[in-house]
């Protein structure tokens, strides 16, 4: 009885080892086929450029995953607010004190600024308002973030072509410039953040009106900031100066949107050019509510905030 049992056991083990032997050897032909398929996909996408044949596939996958991502983000949102409940009274008092100090120093700056600068600011405000009149704001929430492993800093927002969005529109939040719309599905849109290494925005230095290019360097932390290179090499940008978008009415970026503040200036003797670090106003690691600037009068399935502040 015992002998038979052990013989059967051995028998079974041999069988299962056979199975494992057959199972554990991945078929090389299939592996090579899949590698070639991946390489083909890469080639198609690289050579296609903007009119890549992969774009329709992206759109289809986006139509499927967009609503799922929006729904999950909605379910997750209450839980992400939990850490805020644990802020103590001391924390709040500290932040009030800091804000009061900041407020006081800002007021002092405004009062000590020259009359000319104030007048310039007024004119600037006027022109900015005039330019703003052509645009309305579609509110949207960020529902998904691209992982940094993927090396591109993009987010998904829960408004799409049915809300009047199309590629190349400017995305802002209450602090300043967030990025631009890359592609849309019917219910979602993918936004390229200005901190993405691929992103370049035309920028204008507030005090000197000098033009330059602001590009991202792939980091979410505010200290690493954005790179600013001025068109005119001889001009040295000043610290603490504000950089706004230069843009065009029909181009991807609307003019006059604040981008950030210059924190450091480097001059390179070899390249004879100036490089400045711009700390963005927007906190990219905590993006939530954003607005997409659409032409005034755009038809949308949600409330649109018009330039004069009215809700439509």
């Amino acid at each position: 009885m015992g002998l038979r049992g052990s013989a059967e056991g051995r028998e079974r083990r041999w069988h299962s080892l056979d199975h494992l032997e057959a199972r554990n050897r991945p078929p090389r032909s299939l592996f090579v086929a899949l590698l070639l398929a991946s390489a083909t996909l890469v080639t198609l996408d690289v050579s296609g450029g903007d009119a890549s044949p992969v774009e329709p596939a992206r759109r289809v996958v986006g139509e499927v995953f967009g609503p799922v991502e929006s729904a999950t983000a909605l379910a997750v949102r209450p839980f992400t607010a939990v850490p805020d409940w644990f802020r103590s009274k001391g924390d709040l008092a500290d932040s009030v004190r800091e804000l009061e100090a900041e407020n006081a120093s800002l007021r002092e700056q405004v009062q000590t600024a020259g009359v000319d600068r104030n007048r310039l600011e007024q004119y600037d405000g006027l022109t900015a308002a005039a330019q703003d009149l052509g645009h309305a704001l579609v509110p949207a929430r960020v529902v998904a973030f691209g992982p940094r492993q993927a090396q591109s800093l993009t987010v998904t927002i829960d408004a799409g072509s049915s809300s009047g969005l199309r590629p190349d529109l400017t995305v802002v939040n209450d602090r300043g410039l967030v990025g631009r719309v890359l592609r849309v599905t019917s219910t979602t849109a993918t936004v390229l953040l200005v901190v993405d290494p691929e992103s370049t925005v035309g920028g204008r230095v507030g005090s000197s009106m000098e033009l330059g290019f602001v590009s991202g360097n792939g980091s979410l932390t505010a200290e690493d900031g954005l790179d600013l290179r001025l068109v005119d090499d001889t001009v040295v940008p000043a610290r603490d100066d504000t950089v706004v978008t230069w843009g065009s009415q029909d181009g991807p970026y609307v003019p006059g949107v604040p981008i950030g503040r210059i924190t450091e200036v480097y001059s390179s003797l070899r390249e004879a050019s100036q490089r400045a670090v711009v700390e963005p106003f927007v906190d990219f690691s905590a993006l939530d509510l954003v607005g997409v600037l659409v032409p005034s009068g755009t038809t949308s399935d949600r409330a649109v905030i018009e330039a004069d502040g009215s809700l439509r």
Binding site: A39, T40, L41, V42, L44, R58, G62, G146, S152, T190
Partner: peptide, 15 residues
């Protein structure tokens, strides 16, 4: 590679 908000060249994660 394809699901939003991916924006890199498609096929890289597949590989």
């Amino acid at each position: 590679d394809l699901a939003p908000p991916a924006d890199h060249v498609a096929g890289r994660w597949a590989l």
